[in-house]
Simulated scan of single mutants.
Amino acid sequence: MTPEVIRRHYLEAMGITAWACRYQLPNARPTEACEWDDTPAASTPPRERLQALLDDAPAPRTPPTDVQPAKGDVPASPSAVRALLEEQRSTAPSQPAKPSPTPAAEPQPTRAQPLEFHLSCVCIGGRWLSLHAGKLSAAEQRLLANMLQAAGLSDGAMPDVTLFKWPPMAMTFAADDPLEEAREGVSAFVNGVASRQGWQLEELLWWGADTTGSDHEALSQVLDVHDDQSRSLALPVWQAPALSTLTHSISAKRALWPKLHALGQRWHTPLSGRADDR
């Protein structure tokens, strides 16, 4: 039942008449909705009805009684518990800790050192390619022009030198085979220049086969010359001392002249009628 109904029952039991409004006054709070008991008033005296309501009320709860500890039980102190744990730990057999196995270091594969060199090339008549390790100085360029003129290969003008550097830019990663990559790079450079300039290359003039140096040694490996044939560029090779050697050695120039003269004769001879003078 709602509190309003209970309140009315108590008022009736005490003999107090409860009044309820039938109309709502202006600005008055609405009457709470409840279950109105329309049953006629009982003939039981108010005192007896009040006693009956009191008898029906639930009995109050009894608070739980605290359980008293037994007289023989003594609470253990923290120090006693700690001492007991240490005693059990000391009596337990101690086992030596096994060292964790250290993984064996895997051997790192050794990579070959990258090749670095400079290459100067001069094309003669769109047919022969003159290769030189490193950069040509002005004196070496003049010597080359004079020798080509003496052999009848040019008119003595200063040659147009094309410089190539390997690697063309800083390598972002190490190559697995630096030598093979350098050979492919030089081949791509020569083929690209020949295609742009319209050259029809027939032979290589390699100056510096007998010279030691970083550029000369690297370029000798890249050209891969065997039996007067470059495997990298797939062209026949004519070899002579480096221009730096010829610049400072008169005897080297005299020794080269017969070979240079024969080279001039082959220049004017068709490919089908040439004799091998390399």
Rank of each mutant, 00 (worst) to 15 (best):
F164A: 03
E181Q: 15
E140H: 04
D210K: 10
A76W: 14
S187F: 05
S100Y: 06
A150I: 02
T247V: 14
L148Q: 11
A275P: 07
P178F: 08
H226L: 01
E87K: 15
V5M: 10
H216R: 09
W19G: 07
W206F: 14
S77K: 07
S43A: 14
D55M: 11
S137T: 15
G125V: 06
P58F: 00
A182I: 02
P63F: 00
M158P: 01
A138E: 13
P270S: 09
L148K: 07
A83P: 08
P64H: 03
L148S: 06
F164L: 07
S154T: 15
V237H: 01
A242L: 00
T162F: 03
L85F: 11
A42Y: 00
T211I: 05
E116G: 04
N27W: 11
D55V: 14
I16H: 06
D56T: 07
L223K: 05
R61K: 12
D56A: 15
T2W: 11
A139E: 15
P58K: 04
R47N: 10
L54W: 13
L260I: 12
S214P: 02
L260K: 06
M158A: 12
S130M: 12
R61V: 12
L271P: 08
D176Y: 06
Q113P: 05
V222Q: 02
E32D: 13
T2Q: 11
L144E: 10
P167I: 05
H226S: 06
K98S: 13
A252V: 06
P93Y: 04
V190I: 15
V190Q: 09
T31W: 00
A194M: 10
R183P: 10
W267R: 00
G213R: 08
S120P: 10
A255S: 14
D227M: 01
L153N: 01
F189E: 06
Q229M: 14
G125I: 07
W267A: 15
L246V: 01
D210W: 07
G15H: 02
R196G: 03
R111T: 14
P63I: 03
L201C: 06
P60Y: 07
S220E: 05
T91I: 11
S90H: 12
A151R: 05
R8W: 07
A42R: 02
W238G: 01
T31R: 03
L11F: 06
L11A: 13
M169I: 03
L53M: 15
I6Y: 05
G213L: 00
S43E: 14
D177F: 11
G156P: 08
D177W: 09
Q108H: 11
A209C: 10
A104S: 14
A262W: 09
M158G: 02
H118S: 12
E140K: 02
R22C: 04
L205V: 12
K71M: 07
L219Y: 09
L115Y: 10
K165M: 00
P64N: 05
A240Q: 09
P75M: 07
A262I: 05
T17F: 05
L219A: 03
S120I: 10
S272W: 00
A133P: 03
P78W: 00
F164D: 05
W257S: 13
W199D: 09
P99R: 15
W267M: 09
P3C: 08
V5F: 09
L223A: 08
A255Y: 01
S90I: 11
V237C: 03
Y23L: 13
